[in-house]
């Protein structure tokens, strides 16, 4: 009987170790999201995401590190919601139409601000969804001409519902 032994490559062990360290240090993606079939994904990296429809409805995700030694000081979710609402109020032309409590795909509680804006006699829709974790601030905004946005509203809502906060 020929005894065979499987020799483990030292490189494989090193890869496992590196992956473990990679995950442990949080160097992986800050979010995850599923792009609907009627949208094209233009960008996806650790901190940003962009997708759009063929007729100009755009969804954008941005993740900002917050807390000590981060670009943004740490603050509670309510602070960021108030700050966002106030900034849109100062930027003339945006009417706050609704404010909703939402949940990410992984159950994280967030807030959605719904704005309307008229530009050149055309109505536009603009949503801002915020999730706040201990280390990150997630801002997902979506918008476009109202009639086009309403046409793909289900897709936009599905995309936002698939958003995972990490």
């Amino acid at each position: 009987m020929i005894r065979t032994t499987t020799r483990r490559s030292p490189w494989a062990a090193l890869m496992v170790l590196l992956l473990f360290l990679f995950a442990a240090t949080g160097c992986g993606p800050s979010f995850d999201v599923v792009t609907p079939d009627d949208m094209v994904e233009l960008e996806r990296d650790r901190h940003s995401y962009v997708a759009m429809t063929y007729d100009g409805v755009v969804v954008r995700g941005s993740v900002y590190a917050q807390g000590e030694r981060a670009d943004v000081p740490g603050a509670a979710h309510e602070f960021w919601v108030n700050a966002t609402r106030e900034r849109m109020r100062l930027r003339a032309g945006y009417a706050l139409l609704d404010e909703q409590e939402v949940r990410s795909a992984d159950g994280h509680l967030g807030t959605r601000l719904v704005f309307g804006r008229d530009q050149q006699d055309s109505p536009y829709v603009y949503w801002i969804t915020l999730f706040t974790t201990e280390d990150h601030l997630h801002i997902i905004d979506a918008g476009g001409q109202k009639d086009r946005f309403e046409g793909v509203r289900d897709s936009v809502e599905a995309l936002l519902a698939s958003y995972e906060v990490r």
Binding site: L42, V72, T84, R87, M88, L90, Y126, I128
Partner: peptide, 23 residues
């Protein structure tokens, strides 16, 4: 009266609708 966080400047349709131009 505006918080000193530049990422707030990216909010709004003006910025959002210009994003696809980068591609």
């Amino acid at each position: 009266f505006m918080l000193p966080f530049t990422f707030f400047d990216q909010l709004g349709l003006e910025s959002l609708m210009r994003v696809p131009r980068r591609y």
